[in-house]
């Protein structure tokens, strides 16, 4: 929770700097952000590949739970396709790209800004931050009415860090491994899906 507040604080201070022109330097005109993004993607990949504990914990999983990330992605895309009917002035692929952020708001908003401009990037940031907050707030209700896998699906990529403690509290500690596995598959899928829907 604290981590996401710090991230939002940086974004908010950036907005203030932009609104009141505190920084006499046009970032958008430079390629620096693109290269910084590449460093970020490489680092995200590195941290996935580097953690050998994670590979080991995969093997102790119930094989049927392996399908959960696929369900999360299919459910998210289906839900977003329906949601796009209520946003007639945005193309369906844009809505699917935003949904493909899977609560990984930092990476998805940066990627979408790169591909489709800062306006859709902002939608992605808000939508995916909101998804994480909803997971934190609704986890107990989701478990009660829709089973122990529901908060993990709703949590998307955040199940590997911010929402994991809440989920393991309400779904049970044995689901922490599922959270990690799910979060890794999401981390890997977000750049892939966002790129796909931005370029179609």
């Amino acid at each position: 929770m604290k981590g996401s507040l710090i991230i939002l604080a940086f974004f908010a201070v950036g907005i203030l700097c932009g609104l009141y022109r505190w920084i006499p330097f046009d970032f958008t005109a430079h390629r620096a952000t693109t290269y910084t993004l590449y460093v970020l993607l490489f680092s995200v990949g590195f941290s996935i590949g580097n953690d050998k504990e994670l590979l080991r914990s995969f093997r102790s999983l119930d094989p049927r739970v392996m399908w959960l990330p696929a369900m999360t992605i299919a459910g998210t895309l289906a839900g977003c396709a329906v949601a796009s009917l209520f946003i007639p002035d945005r193309p369906t692929t844009d809505v699917l790209a935003v949904g493909s952020g899977l609560a990984y708001y930092s990476l998805s908003s940066i990627l979408i800004t790169e591909y489709r401009g800062v306006e859709l990037g902002t939608v992605a940031l808000l939508a995916n931050v909101l998804r994480e907050l909803i997971t934190l707030l609704l986890a107990p209700l989701l478990v009660r009415y829709f089973g122990k896998l529901a908060p993990i699906s709703v949590g998307g990529a955040s199940t590997i860090d911010i929402t994991m403690p809440v989920i393991s509290r309400y779904s049970g500690r044995e689901y922490a491994v599922v959270c990690i596995y799910h979060g890794i598959v999401m981390d890997f899928s977000v750049p892939f899906l966002v790129t796909l829907f931005c370029l179609i």
Binding site: M71, T72, G75, L77, A78, G79, L102, R131, V154, G156
Partner: peptide, 17 residues
């Protein structure tokens, strides 16, 4: 718009999970 997309994503992923 962000709220609508998130609602769709949450309802859809909950249903599939």
């Amino acid at each position: 718009d962000a709220l609508i997309v998130t609602t769709g994503a949450v309802v859809g992923s909950t249903a599939f999970a």
